[in-house]
Amino acid sequence: MYDMNRVENAVSQGDIKISANDVQVYYGDKHAIKDVSVDILDKTVTAFIGPSGCGKSTFLRCINRMNDTIPIARIEGRIALDGEDIYDRRVDPVQLRAKVGMVFQKPNPFPKSIYDNVAYGPRIHGMTRNRADLDQIVEKALRGAALWNEVKDRLHEPGTGLSGGQQQRLCIARAVATEPEVLLMDEPCSALDPIATSQVEELIDQLREKYSVVIVTHSMQQAARVSQKTAFFHLGHLVEYGDTDDIFTKPQDSRTEAYISGRIG
């Protein structure tokens, strides 16, 4: 039993949430991202597709400044969240990451209990005053990640004991527990089997009601299934960006067409 049945994509797309202008990323001497400008909408699933090494994950990690942890990475240009430049000197990346959550390629729950995994974010951000509030937040997050019914009787068992798909949904629950505004997902289904993948995809579709979701994926079918907007990256360039239907049915650029028809990548 799932918490919610799959809803139709009836949510209207929102305003511009993230706006990137002329973003350049260098890893040492390597120019990894070249002149990327893109507007990502609120309450929309945006998919980044492209061949391996095209820079889509790198660009995703710029949006919550995870690249700061890589000493040789250098970023130029402007990325704004709700009009505020996230690379401004006054911005604390820790505060930014509370607003822009992230789910990684490989499920990486903390080696703690399921409860503690979800409660960790709210705890460190001081979102609750007492245990009852925290219990509520944990339940809400787990329901939001469509995991509550499966784990409600074993909240205090280790999160690493769950199956791969459950672990990834636990990571999503952990990310949504801090009530972010944007959710970044870096190939969230690449380590999952088809059934777990469809569960996570269903979940992504529901998350769109509340968040702006950006998903990096290798699978074009997945991009077509879950996203409303698609961006195609190639060799560090943003080649084409538009409505998913348009990208897959009438691509403007020959490289996009070559990629989606399987000739490159």
Partner: peptide
Amino acid sequence: VPPSIRDAALGVGASKMQSVFHH
């Protein structure tokens, strides 16, 4: 310690020190 644990902690908005001492 696998780097994914550090990423996970930073990803939910932990500071560097919190990620080190908590995880």
